[in-house]
Structure formats: C-alpha cells, structure tokens
Amino acid sequence: MRRGDLYRVYRGSKNDPKNYRVFAVVSRQILIDSKFSTVTCAPVYSSYAALSTQVLVGVNEGLKHDSAIHCDELVSIPKSLLTHYIGKLSYHKLARLREALLIALDIED
C-alpha cells in the first residue's frame, strides 16, 4: 500500500447511497508502513466543483469515468478494508494531492 493508491471500499453506511466508494490513501508513507491499523483516506466522487481542495482523476488512475478526490472530507479507514486495488496516482497527481491537502488543512507551505 502506497500514498496515492486508490481502493474500492464497501461502505455499508446508511448515509451513503452507494454500497462501494473509491478512496485515495493520503497518509504519509511511514504511517502506512507502521503497525497502526488505520490510514487516512479521501473519498472519490463523480462530482467536481473546481475547488482547490479537489483533484481530478479518471481512467488513467484506474477509474471508469472522470471523478475527483475530495480532500475536505478525510476519513480514517482500517487497512484491512483496503483490499480492492483500483489504481494509483501519477507523480503529477500526487503533487496536486499534496497541494489540495495543504489547502484543505489550512497549512502554509
């Protein structure tokens, strides 16, 4: 598992209309490689509002259609649920993800 990997996760939530949702792993690599049982992820939605906290993704990353990673909606997900690998972000998209996370968390670079 690497930062920028995309996984389809069964949500099973009554609040989410979809049974499955794709998530991008955004935790730093040292945490991913540690014994911690969870990692921080950002959901991928088909909607895109051109916000600076959203990163466009699509078929090049293993998805069926154009979508966006929403960095304003970070969640902690158990590593054990990240089993259905979809694809990964390119170096350019990883850099864009970093920028979006800095903005979403209001961290000055």
Rank of each mutant, 00 (worst) to 15 (best):
residue 65 H to P: 00
residue 44 V to M: 04
residue 44 V to K: 08
residue 33 D to F: 00
residue 71 C to Y: 00
residue 9 V to Q: 08
residue 22 V to L: 02
residue 47 S to V: 05
residue 21 R to M: 09
residue 76 S to P: 00
residue 48 Y to H: 12
residue 41 C to E: 03
residue 76 S to W: 04
residue 95 A to I: 03
residue 82 L to Q: 07
residue 54 Q to T: 02
residue 51 L to Q: 10
residue 80 S to K: 13
residue 85 Y to F: 15
residue 99 E to G: 07
residue 31 L to W: 11
residue 69 I to G: 06
residue 84 H to S: 14
residue 96 R to C: 02
residue 13 S to V: 01
residue 69 I to D: 03
residue 70 H to E: 08
residue 69 I to N: 06
residue 62 G to Q: 12
residue 34 S to D: 05
residue 27 S to K: 10
residue 67 S to D: 06
residue 68 A to E: 09
residue 39 V to S: 04
residue 66 D to H: 12
residue 20 Y to P: 13
residue 102 L to K: 12
residue 56 L to T: 15
residue 95 A to T: 08
residue 97 L to R: 08
residue 16 D to K: 09
residue 25 V to H: 03
residue 27 S to F: 04
residue 60 N to P: 08
residue 41 C to W: 01
residue 83 T to S: 11
residue 102 L to Q: 12
residue 14 K to R: 10
residue 23 F to S: 03
residue 88 K to V: 07
residue 64 K to T: 11
residue 79 K to V: 00
residue 41 C to G: 04
residue 24 A to R: 09
residue 58 G to H: 05
residue 35 K to T: 09
residue 89 L to M: 13
residue 69 I to M: 05
residue 74 L to H: 02
residue 32 I to V: 11
residue 5 D to V: 00
residue 63 L to H: 07
residue 14 K to C: 02
residue 74 L to T: 03
residue 62 G to Y: 11
residue 26 V to Q: 13
residue 19 N to I: 03
residue 83 T to H: 06
residue 30 I to P: 00
residue 32 I to R: 04
residue 85 Y to I: 08
residue 57 V to A: 07
residue 84 H to P: 03
residue 41 C to V: 10
